[in-house]
Measured scan of single mutants.
Amino acid sequence: NKFNKELGWATWEIFNLPNLNGVQVKAFIDSLRDDPSQSANLLAEAKKLNDAQA
Rank of each mutant, 00 (worst) to 15 (best):
N4H: 10
N4D: 15
S37V: 04
L20C: 02
N1C: 15
L49H: 02
D51K: 10
L43S: 01
R33D: 03
T11Y: 14
N1M: 04
V23A: 15
D35T: 07
F15S: 14
F15Y: 13
E6Q: 04
N16E: 04
W9G: 07
F15V: 14
F3R: 11
A10V: 15
E6V: 08
L32E: 00
F3E: 13
L7H: 03
F15A: 14
K26M: 12
D35W: 07
A27S: 12
D51L: 08
Q38S: 10
W12F: 10
L32W: 04
V23M: 12
N41I: 11
G8N: 13
A52R: 14
P36R: 02
Q38G: 05
K26S: 06
K48R: 13
Q53E: 04
Q24H: 03
N21M: 08
L49R: 02
I29E: 02
R33P: 01
K47E: 03
A54H: 08
K47S: 03
A10R: 03
A46S: 02
N1L: 06
A52Q: 10
N21K: 07
K26I: 08
L32H: 00
R33Y: 15
D35G: 02
L20S: 00
L32Y: 03
L42D: 01
K2L: 08
L49T: 04
L7N: 04
G8K: 14
A27M: 13
D34C: 13
L43P: 00
F3Q: 10
P36W: 05
L49N: 02
D51G: 04
F28H: 00
I14G: 02
L49C: 09
T11R: 07
K5Y: 10
Q38H: 04
N41D: 10
L20E: 00
N16S: 08
A40E: 09
V25W: 02
N16C: 14
L49F: 02
G22V: 11
S31T: 06
E45L: 11
K2V: 08
D34H: 12
N50I: 02
A44N: 08
A40C: 15
L43K: 01
L43A: 03
N19D: 03
G8A: 15
N19G: 03
A52C: 11
R33N: 12
Q53A: 05
A40Q: 10
L17N: 01
N19T: 03
D35N: 11
N50H: 02
I14C: 08
A10H: 06
K26H: 09
Q24F: 02
N1T: 06
L49V: 08
S31P: 01
A54D: 07
I29L: 13
K5H: 11
K26P: 00
D34W: 08
A10C: 14
F3H: 12
A44I: 09
A40S: 09
S31I: 10
K48A: 13
L20V: 01
W9P: 07
G22M: 13
D51Y: 06
N41R: 11
P18S: 08
K2E: 12
N1Y: 02
N1E: 12
P36G: 03
P18Q: 06
W9M: 13
K47R: 13
Q53M: 12
Q38C: 13
F3N: 13
K5D: 15
R33F: 13
G22R: 11
T11E: 15
P36V: 04
F3S: 13
R33H: 10
I14V: 05
L7T: 06
D35R: 05
L20Q: 00
L7Y: 11
E45D: 12
A52Y: 08
P18A: 08
D35A: 06
A52K: 09
P18Y: 05
W12Y: 10
V25C: 10
P18R: 05
V25F: 02
E6M: 11
A52F: 07
Q53L: 10
D51V: 05
D30S: 08
A46V: 02
L20K: 00
N16A: 06
